[in-house]
Structures are given as structure tokens and as C-alpha cells.
Simulated assay, not measured.
Amino acid sequence: MFIAGVSACTVGIAHTYMAQQKLEDAAKAAGDDIKIETQGTIGIENALTAEDIERADIIILAVDIKIAGDERFEGKKVVKVSTETAIKSPNKLIAKLHEIAGK
């Protein structure tokens, strides 16, 4: 399964990157491919391309704030959680994404 998503926290530093790392580690452990865009104090990093979004089986938004470009995900299965959920329960979250995506 290919998961694409965005992580962003209120301050745009620690939790943004912690959520990204935890999601990437959990997805890889489950055998998935994943790409997480971060939106933080230094702007957008690891930006999702139109191809990434098209290819994605599901979109994960681990966000605590309004993100830029959320309209890109219209028509896709989108799951929105807090960065805290992504950090504290990444394996359960990836399992839930599989359930929702039917993969």
C-alpha cells in the first residue's frame, strides 16, 4: 500500500517531525511505502507531488493546524488525526489505515 500525507503541529518544529518519523517507521514495518510532507516553521519540506497523491491508496493528515493545500486531497480517502496520535500510536494508526483503505 502507498500512503501519502502531511504532518504539521502548532509550533511547526518538534511534533511535526516526530509524527513524520513515527509514521514512516510504522509504515515501513508494515511493508508499506509512505511519503509524508511536513509543514513547519521553515515552510513545506518533502512536498507531495500530484503523482504521489494520485498513487496514494490513502491520505494521512497528522495535523494540529490548518494546512496549506488540503484541497489537493479531494476525492481521496483521507484520515485526519492529531500529531500526538501519530506519535503515540503509529502502529495502530497504520493498521487502521489498512482497514479503511481495504488493503
Rank of each mutant, 00 (worst) to 15 (best):
M1Q: 06
F2L: 13
F2M: 14
F2N: 14
I3F: 08
A4V: 00
V6L: 03
V6R: 00
S7V: 06
A8F: 04
T10G: 15
V11D: 06
V11M: 06
V11Q: 04
V11F: 09
G12R: 03
G12N: 05
I13G: 07
A14D: 01
H15I: 12
T16M: 08
T16W: 06
T16I: 03
Y17A: 13
Y17V: 15
Y17W: 08
M18L: 12
Q20N: 09
Q20Y: 02
Q21V: 11
K22T: 12
L23A: 10
E24T: 09
E24M: 13
D25P: 15
A26C: 11
A26F: 00
A27N: 07
K28I: 15
A29I: 13
A29E: 07
A30G: 11
A30Y: 07
G31P: 09
D32M: 12
D32W: 06
I34M: 02
I34W: 00
I34D: 00
K35P: 00
I36D: 02
I36V: 09
E37K: 03
E37T: 03
T38P: 09
Q39S: 01
G40I: 05
T41M: 12
I42Y: 14
G43N: 08
G43S: 10
G43F: 06
E45A: 15
E45P: 00
E45L: 12
N46V: 08
A47Y: 05
A47I: 02
L48D: 12
L48T: 07
T49Y: 00
T49E: 11
T49M: 09
A50G: 10
A50C: 11
A50N: 11
A50W: 05
E51C: 13
E51I: 13
E51H: 06
D52Y: 00
D52V: 00
I53D: 01
E54N: 08
R55A: 15
D57L: 02
I59D: 01
I59Y: 03
I59A: 05
I60E: 01
L61H: 05
A62V: 07
A62Y: 02
D64K: 00
I65A: 02
K66L: 14
K66E: 09
I67F: 10
I67T: 14
I67A: 12
I67W: 09
A68P: 01
G69P: 02
G69R: 03
G69N: 05
D70Y: 02
D70I: 03
E71I: 09
E71Y: 04
R72E: 15
F73T: 01
F73M: 00
E74S: 12
G75F: 00
G75I: 03
G75L: 01
K76I: 04
K77T: 05
V78Y: 04
V79F: 00
V79Q: 08
K80V: 06
V81C: 07
S82I: 04
E84K: 07
A86L: 14
A86S: 13
I87M: 15
I87G: 14
K88Q: 13
P90L: 14
P90C: 12
P90F: 11
N91C: 07
K92D: 15
K92L: 15
L93V: 14
I94G: 10
A95D: 15
A95W: 06
K96Y: 10
L97Y: 01
L97M: 13
L97D: 10
H98M: 11
E99R: 15
I100P: 05
I100K: 08
G102V: 10
G102H: 05
K103M: 07
K103I: 11
K103S: 11
